[in-house]
């Protein structure tokens, strides 16, 4: 048993020699039982990171451990739903679920898979090729949940679901996490829908981890300050982003000790924190203690 779901050290992946690597030097640690939002702009490397953790890609360099072992060895305990929700188009809904049962004999939760499918009013006889994007997503998630995996890797799971379906599925995922301590990693570029469901965050951009850690810890490490001072007055802190507002200045800072009372201080929202870091690609990364890779990860 391990208390670490995913641990990456200096993880790099290049799809070709001439192309910019999709990931370069990613290091982080995700404890088990967390619900982690994997956010970042398009092309940031989110899908690459998930595919690596699912054991579908091999890193160019660096190391990656999943549930205390190699991604390939962890595969029976991991469920991965790729962005394009690959399913066999010629099978019916019922046949797809039966395939899930046979491929995961021993751990398959038929009741849960059937419930997730039934919630979406999927006709058991319908062929996969006739399903809408949202219905296909639901079937893919039914397969993933039915597997009763210890780690769920979901790439843009909510993208083509309507608001009610999103809410229901997120509720089902949270119930799984509450009851079985399942670790969940979900990617999205819409942070709003993840903010309440997740307790952990990985912000990836430009192939690097920019922010990593518990959401509360990351938010508390920053402050949104407004005042008539100058950027130089904030020098003891790390200024992530600053801009002129009226006669004064608004800045998002990573605090180091108390802030001069001349500044009006507010806690940033998660969205403000993420946007500031995305607009300021040169701001130093912050991986909070306990979420940095701790020891040599499995080769």
């Amino acid at each position: 048993m391990t208390d670490t779901a995913i641990e990456a050290a200096d993880l790099t992946l290049a799809y070709g020699r001439r192309r910019e690597p999709a990931l370069r030097g990613c290091s982080f640690r995700l404890a088990t039982g967390r619900v982690c939002a994997l956010v970042g702009p398009n092309g940031a490397g989110k899908s690459t990171l998930l595919a690596l953790a699912a054991g579908l890609l091999r890193p160019t360099s660096g190391r990656l451990a999943v549930l205390g072992t190699t991604p390939a060895a962890a595969r029976p305990r991991v469920a991965y739903v790729a962005q394009d929700k690959p399913l066999h188009p010629g099978l019916s809904v019922a046949e797809t679920l039966r395939l899930g049962a046979e491929l995961n004999a021993g751990s398959w939760d038929a009741a849960l898979a059937a419930q997730v499918a039934a919630d979406g009013e999927l006709d058991p006889g319908a062929r996969v090729r006739s399903l809408s994007g949202g219905q296909r997503t639901r079937l893919a998630l039914a397969l993933a949940l039915g597997k009763r995996a210890e780690l769920l890797l979901l790439d843009e799971p909510m993208a083509d679901l309507d608001p009610l379906a999103r809410n229901r599925l997120m509720g089902t995922l949270m119930a799984e996490a509450a009851e079985h301590g399942t670790t969940v990693v979900m990617s999205s570029h819409i942070i709003g829908e993840l903010a309440d469901a997740c307790d952990h965050l990985l912000l990836v951009s430009g192939g690097r981890v920019r922010l990593g850690g518990g959401i509360d810890d990351l938010v508390h490490a920053h402050a949104l300050v407004t005042g008539t001072g100058r950027v130089a007055d904030l020098a003891r802190h790390t200024v992530v982003e600053s801009r002129a507002t009226g006669r004064g200045l608004t800045a998002l800072i990573r605090t180091d000790g108390p802030v001069d009372p001349a500044w009006d201080v507010e806690e940033p929202s998660l969205e403000e924190l993420l946007l500031a870091h995305l607009r300021a690609p040169d701001a130093p990364a912050l991986i909070t203690p306990g979420t940095t890779p701790t020891r040599a990860v499995a080769a």
């Binding site: 619900v35 509720g171 119930a175 996490a177 309440d196």
Partner: peptide, 14 residues
């Protein structure tokens, strides 16, 4: 906690 998170889709730790 399970019942609350299933209905509200918030994180169990919350």
């Amino acid at each position: 906690a399970r019942e609350v998170v299933e209905a509200t889709a918030v994180n169990p730790n919350t």
